[in-house]
Simulated scan of single mutants.
Amino acid sequence: MLVLALDTATPAVTAGVVELTDAGPVERSVRVTLDARKHAELLMPGVLAACAEAGVALRDVDAVVTGTGPGPFTGLRVGMVTAAALGDALDVPVHGVCSLDAIAADALAAAAALPGRLLVVTDARRREVYWALYDGALRDGDGAPRRVDGPHVEAPVTLAARAAALGAVAAAGASAAAVGLPEREPASPSPAGLVAVAAVALRSAERPGPLEPLYLRRPDAVEPGARKRVSAG
């Protein structure tokens, strides 16, 4: 099965073609560009370049996987809308996965056994971070790590103060340094990590549900309230 994997939940604009084999995900191509302000300009060129490098056309893709955050509103929407549009145009299923789960899958796949839990921490802006907690000993049918807490948004100093109480012994993600634990790669989701998280769903015959973004914050813009009545005189 050939899967197109996208993520724009972080400053890394990620696209790649992954082959989901019986042994797990195998990356055929990867395109990553770091630019927090140009997700819309960079994503489709990255998709086309990834397909060209893998030697496949978009019509050869069997499914699309996209990170659903948590992430800043504008960047996250670019990836999810692009994935939905491609799925519709190609008539293939589109699976959404938590971007923090994909980072955890990469971090735990590349590391030796972890004697405790892993925190995945990414930048939420406004002096806050997004985070989720994983137990590497708990895996799904395809080996993806199980999330045991989160995702949440919080001040990094608050998270750092209770990291030990959460049982965390290491951290991954672009803001891992903020919690004072030993750091592990990667900083952002890889195409293989995204597909690893979605592997069970991809192997099933069920059609995925609607994509649901993880913003974790209420929107800044609100509907205006009723106009105040002005009294005469």
Rank of each mutant, 00 (worst) to 15 (best):
L119G: 01
A107N: 00
V157M: 14
T14L: 11
G143W: 12
A155P: 11
D135V: 06
R59P: 10
I103M: 05
D22L: 13
A171T: 07
V153W: 01
R207D: 15
P189K: 10
G233W: 12
L6T: 02
L6W: 08
A174W: 01
L34W: 10
V81L: 02
A57L: 07
L181Y: 09
A63L: 10
A170Q: 01
P72C: 06
R127Y: 03
A205D: 15
A111V: 02
P219G: 04
Y134Q: 11
A52P: 00
S29V: 04
L138E: 13
P208A: 11
T14K: 09
A5H: 09
V78Y: 04
P224T: 09
E185D: 14
G24E: 12
A113C: 00
R184Q: 13
G173T: 03
A201F: 05
R28W: 09
A49E: 15
L159S: 02
G193L: 00
P182F: 09
G143R: 03
L100Q: 00
R184Y: 01
Y130R: 03
P213Q: 06
V222D: 14
A144M: 12
A36Y: 03
G79W: 08
G87K: 01
A196T: 09
L216T: 06
A164R: 15
G69W: 04
E27A: 15
A161Q: 02
G209H: 08
A83T: 03
S190W: 10
L76G: 01
G71D: 09
R203M: 12
D60S: 11
V94H: 03
A63V: 06
P210H: 06
E41P: 04
P182Q: 13
A102N: 10
A84E: 14
A111Q: 02
V3M: 04
L181R: 04
L133D: 11
A144L: 09
A192D: 07
E19L: 14
P115E: 10
P208F: 02
A199R: 01
P25W: 11
V97W: 06
A107T: 13
V157K: 14
R146G: 04
T21L: 14
L4A: 01
G79H: 00
L202Q: 02
Y134F: 14
F73P: 01
D91V: 02
K38Y: 13
K38H: 15
D142R: 11
A226W: 00
G180W: 03
R207A: 15
R218G: 13
P191T: 08
V129N: 05
A83Y: 06
I103H: 05
A132N: 05
R37N: 05
V47Q: 00
R126F: 06
T82S: 08
A83W: 04
G173S: 00
